[in-house]
Design a protein around this nucleic acid. Sequence first.
DNA 1: TAGCCGTTTTGATTTGCGTCAACACGTCCA
DNA 2: TGGACGTGTTGACGCAAATCAAAACGGCTA
Lengths: 248, 248
Amino acid sequence: MHTPNKSIIPVTLTTLKAACSQCNLRELCLPYGLSASEIEQIESMVGVRRRVKRQQHLYRAGETFEAIYAIRSGFFKTDVLLEDGRDQVTGFQMAGEILGMDGISGEAHTCNAVALEDSEICVIPFAHLERLSREIQALQRHFHQVMSREIVRDHGVMMLLGTMRAEERLATFLLNLSQRFTTRGYSPAEFHLRMTRDEIGSYLGLKLETVSRAFSRFQDEGFISVQQKHIRILDIAGLKKLLNHPPS
Amino acid sequence: MHTPNKSIIPVTLTTLKAACSQCNLRELCLPYGLSASEIEQIESMVGVRRRVKRQQHLYRAGETFEAIYAIRSGFFKTDVLLEDGRDQVTGFQMAGEILGMDGISGEAHTCNAVALEDSEICVIPFAHLERLSREIQALQRHFHQVMSREIVRDHGVMMLLGTMRAEERLATFLLNLSQRFTTRGYSPAEFHLRMTRDEIGSYLGLKLETVSRAFSRFQDEGFISVQQKHIRILDIAGLKKLLNHPPS
DNA sequence: TAGCCGTTTTGATTTGCGTCAACACGTCCA
DNA sequence: TGGACGTGTTGACGCAAATCAAAACGGCTA
C-alpha cells in the first residue's frame, strides 16, 4: 500500500480549470460569437477538463444526465444499442463538437460515447449552462444553433441511409471527414481514420466487407490511396462525381 | 373581377389569437409543465393560428427561418431534397408536436413541411420564444427537451434504417403510430394512414412495392387488417415479435 | 524472432429488396 | 355512365449487398 506521494491524484482525472479564452477552438465550440467578457463568464460554467483514454466511455446509455461535453482534443463515436444486441454508430465527433445532447430530453443518456483515441473534454454542467444562457443571449442563441445543427446532421444521415448506395455513402463520409478536418486546420487530403471498418460500416448501414470493397474500388479508380487507416484523397472531383447519381 | 365582399379576407389565413390555456394539447405541447400564470405569458408569444390545407406547404427548404410551429390539429410530413431529385421523408408529425427546429441552425429552413390533411398550426416567432425562455425557466427547460427528443427520435430512425429489415421497419412504424395516437386519446388499434405507400416507403428507406407487400404479409399472418389507408391492429404481440430479431 | 490476435482484404455464393410490368381499385369530372 | 388519373396490389426477374469462408497483414508480447 505504499503509494509515491506525487501519484495520489491519478493523472487520468485531471481537474484542470477550463480556459475558453485561451482555447484555440473557441470559434468552433460553444463560446462562438461571444464577447471577451462573456467568455470569461463561460469559463465559470465549464467545470473541469477530463481526460478520456482510448476505448473508455465518456458516458453510457442509462447513466444519469447531468452535463454536456465539449471535445477539446481527440475523437469519439456515439452508438445506440437494441435489446437484441444490434447496435448502430450514430456519429463520430471531433474537437470543438458537443456531446451528450441526447440526454437533455430525459433523466438519462440514450446512447454511449466512446473515445476512439486518447481525448480531452470539457465538462459543462447542464444546469449551469441553462442558467447562463438565460443571462447571455448570444450563448442561448448559439446553443440552440448547436442543437439544431445536430438535427440537420441527423437528417443528412437519414438521407444517406435511406437513399444512397454503398459507394455513394462512403464517398459522402470521406468528403465530410475531409471537410471537418480542414475546418480544424488539418490537411483536407490526408488523414488518419480513428475508427475500424466495422464502425464505419455500422455508421453507414453497411457490413465491414462492403466498406472494405468500396475502399479498394476507390483506390483502383485512383480516387484515394488507402493504407490501413491512412487515407489520402487523390481526386476529390472524382469522389464528388459519385454523389448525386441516383440508383434508378 | 367581381369579388363578394365577405371573401376579401381569405378564410385560409385565419389570424385567430392562440389560447394555450384553453387548448387541450397543452400537456403535449410547449406549455407542458408551466403554471397557469406562465401559460398566460406564453399566449402572448404564440402569434396566431394558421390553417394549412392538405398538400400545402407550411414552409419550404430555403425559406427564411423566423418561427417554429406547434400543430394544433392535422398531420404533416417533413422531407429533404437532394439536388438530383431524390428525396427522403424525415418525419411525420401530429397534433402537439413542434415543426421547424431544423431552421434554427442557419438563416433558412433545410426541409419542407407539407400538410397531409387540412391542419391548423400555432405560429411561434422564434425571437419571441428565446426572449420568453430567458425569463421562464420551465419554458426553457421544456424547449430544450423538445429539441433533444427530436435528436433521440432521429437516432431511432437511423437505427431503423441502418439495421432493420423491411418487415421490422414497417412493424416499428405501425407500433410507433399506434402509440402516438393513443397518447392523443385515439384508438391504439384502429387508425387512418394520412400518407401514401410511397411516403411510408421514403420514410422507411423502402420502395412502395415493398411496403405494400409487407402490409399484405402482415394481413395474411393475421397481425393487422388493411383496407386502403384504414389500418386495424389485430395482434399487437404478433407485430412486436417481429422486432428484436436480428437478420444474422 | 516467433507466435498470437484483432483487423482487413478478397473470393464465392446467397438473398432481400429493387425494378419492371400488368392489373385492380376508388375518385373525380366530363 | 364512362374514361382518366392517382394509388395500391401482385408477379417475375435482376442485382447490390449480405453472408460465409479463407487468407494476409500489422502490432503486440513472450
